[in-house]
Design a protein around this nucleic acid. Structure first.
Length: 228
DNA sequence: GCCCAGGTGGGTA
DNA sequence: TACCCACATGGG
């Protein structure tokens, strides 16, 4: 399994090149984006982030001070704005409670303990939590999302409704605890799925389950060599 | 008009 | 544990 996961990573990296995620300017922006992108197209999140910047709200103290109803209006393009407004405030409340609003202090503690604490914050589930740890805190916590489950179940390496922690464990037990590797692997999975492995596969059925390659408009444009 | 998008929490059996 | 549902905008 370890070799298989590394082969898939190499094939994706070879095809797309390094992606240098997360698409954000600061660690704090990563945290905000991780909450805003819950079940939401990233293009809509970008609009909400742009609004936050325009309004001068993309900072811990500013988000701490702003009224949640006003915050909801600013992040409206991201969808689910009422619940996300509350979730952002919950995260900020925790940040001030534990670290006086200082992200560096947040990430200074043992990350495994921090993961347990973040998961207690309402609105921060396992994917949001691991995204924050990996992409904002540079901690080796593998991120699992809908794309990860879709791709690896189609590859026959997972069952379709495998629980989050089981999937995460599969990667973390079979890959070295390397922040750079985890960072790129998740980014490449997302990129690959957006291009080739949609909910409705572009070629009618996702070809990766046969280990054969990348498809576009029904035509094979590149072949993966996954080995056995 | 319909489907989909980098989830999460609450309720029910 | 395993489903169901609400939450909502915007692009294809």
């Amino acid at each position: 399994m370890k070799n298989r996961l590394l082969e898939i990573f190499d094939a994706l990296l070879n095809h797309f090149g390094p992606l240098f995620w997360w698409p954000a300017e600061t660690p704090f922006e990563v945290c905000v984006g991780a909450i805003l992108t819950q079940n939401t197209n990233w293009a809509n999140v970008e609009k909400a982030i742009a609004n936050l910047k325009t309004e001068g709200l993309l900072a811990p103290q500013a988000l701490h001070d702003v009224d949640s109803a006003r915050l909801a209006e600013v992040i409206r393009p991201a969808g689910f704005f009422n619940v996300k407004s509350v979730r952002l405030k919950e995260f900020i409340d925790y940040l001030f409670k534990c670290c006086d609003g200082d992200l560096d202090r947040l990430f200074a503690v043992d990350w495994r303990e921090l993961r347990g604490e973040l998961l207690k914050v309402r609105g921060i589930g396992p994917e949001t939590c691991d995204s924050i740890l990996l992409y904002a805190g540079n901690k080796p916590s593998f991120v699992v999302d809908a794309y990860t489950k879709r791709l690896f179940s189609r590859l026959g390496l997972l069952r379709e409704n495998e629980p989050y922690e089981e999937v995460r464990g599969l990667f973390m037990e079979n890959l070295p605890a390397d922040v750079g590797l985890y960072n790129e692997y998740h980014a490449l999975i997302v990129r690959h799925c957006k291009d080739f492995c949609r909910k409705k596969p572009i070629c009618g059925r996702c070809p990766l389950r046969y280990g054969c390659g990348f498809h576009m408009a029904g035509k094979v444009v590149k072949t993966l060599s996954l080995g056995k």
